[in-house]
């Protein structure tokens, strides 16, 4: 899995490309923690190239969400693909991690 980020006007967009599993989940958490430490607490995780996510990956997203909120911001997800959507729905975590069609839309109403 490859991570990258870009600071936009009102949020930072984190891209996570590949499989979000028990190997990459701790790396995502570390990556997002660093982005928050760099001063961006409004995070959009763009999952358009995340083909797979398991419960470890979901746990990492929840950890990142908590870290963003503790820093006074929030974390939202965008570009969710069918497998990730399925995992979010089956665990009922789609209530907690709101999915937006695109990264641009995630904070557009704030």
């Amino acid at each position: 899995m490859e991570f990258s980020y870009e600071v936009k006007d009102s949020y930072a967009e984190v891209k996570a490309d590949g499989r979000l599993n028990m190997v990459s989940a701790p790396k995502l958490r570390e990556f997002v923690t660093d982005v928050i430490a760099g001063g961006s607490s409004r995070i959009v995780v763009n999952l358009e190239n995340t083909a797979f996510m398991d419960s470890s990956g979901l746990g990492a997203l929840i950890g990142c969400l908590k870290a963003a909120r503790q820093a006074g911001g929030d974390l939202r997800i965008a570009g969710v693909q069918p497998q990730v959507k399925m995992v979010l729905e089956l665990t009922s975590m789609d209530r907690v991690l709101t999915a937006y069609a695109s990264a641009e839309e995630a904070f557009s109403n704030d």
Partner: peptide, 16 residues
């Protein structure tokens, strides 16, 4: 609970 970062794997397997 919603804040928990683990413990969802078995339920997920059973649902799948």
């Amino acid at each position: 609970d919603d804040d928990s970062e683990s413990g969802r794997g078995l339920a997920l397997i059973e649902a799948l």
